[in-house]
């Protein structure tokens, strides 16, 4: 069974080759006799760029007359409809990527031996729900006169933040447990994302949205609980599994 948690010839630490590591430490000390953590110059450069930076982008204006009315603040009780549109787009982007994350997980589960299989039907249902949530948010954006195909700043930031998650699950070498770890991070963020969105929609008088989104949040809570349980059970079971024997030794002598 491929779990990614076996002892073997990992060569990354200094314990792999104590003699060579000692030489590296001695070389570094000789090369920099007086070490000190001086980050003031780095901080200055970064602050300089922060001050000069332009925003990563904007929220597009409404695409319909109704949207224009909304953005003028007449149908929304908040002053900045752009904030709601931006956070809706963020949720849309996250649910869309979340759907793909589940697809990658399902593909990996189907390729794994039966012993490693999680309740596949349940995972498939979660996938379908993520997709339905995405469509729910798209419809909400349209009702506000926004463009659900546009990528707003928060949607973009969300894409950047999620890059590593897909990278983990899409890697054929990672195990189901590794993949569940990535899904777990996604579901944690997703749950809080929905909570925030519901609060925001409520503060802007969008009661219909609050009702629909609350139902989505119920499903997301179930996703999180299940993923957390599968992950925990998997790790605990792994710790009890019979281990293969491994004899450690010096990897190189230079």
């Amino acid at each position: 069974m491929k779990t990614g948690i076996e002892m073997g010839l990992n060569r990354t630490g200094i314990g792999t080759s104590p003699l060579a590591a000692k030489a590296s430490i001695q070389g570094a000390e000789e090369g920099v006799p007086l070490a000190g953590i001086d980050g003031s110059g780095m901080a200055r450069v970064r602050a300089d760029y922060v001050r000069d930076a332009e925003p990563i982008g904007t929220v597009p204006p409404p695409t319909s007359v109704k949207g224009a009315v909304l953005s003028a603040g007449q149908l929304l009780s908040g002053k900045r409809p752009a904030v709601l549109l931006d956070k809706l787009s963020e949720r849309l982007a996250f649910e869309r990527t979340g759907t793909r994350l589940y697809e990658a997980l399902i593909a990996k589960m189907e390729a794994m031996p039966a012993t490693e299989k999680l309740p596949l039907e349940e995972v498939r249902r979660f996938h379908d729900e993520e997709r339905a949530h995405m469509q729910l948010v798209a419809a909400a954006i349209e009702r506000l006169g926004g463009d659900p195909t546009a990528e707003t700043p928060s949607a973009d930031v969300d894409g950047v933040a999620s890059m590593g998650l897909l990278q983990v699950i899409a890697d054929p070498r990672t195990s189901i447990l590794h993949s569940l770890h990535a899904i777990h991070i996604a579901e944690l963020a997703d749950n809080d994302g929905w909570l925030l969105l519901i609060q925001l929609a409520g503060s802007m008088g969008q009661d219909e949205m609050v009702t629909a989104f609350s139902a989505a949040l119920d499903e997301e809570e179930e996703h999180l609980e299940s993923v957390r349980r599968w992950m925990t059970n998997g790790v605990l079971a792994e710790a009890q599994r019979e281990a293969a024997t491994f004899e450690p030794g010096e990897a190189h002598a230079t």
Partner: peptide
């Protein structure tokens, strides 16, 4: 960086 270098190569100026 030594996770990559595996103690083969010095890291110094």
């Amino acid at each position: 960086a030594n996770n990559i270098l595996q103690s083969y190569t010095d890291i110094r100026p």
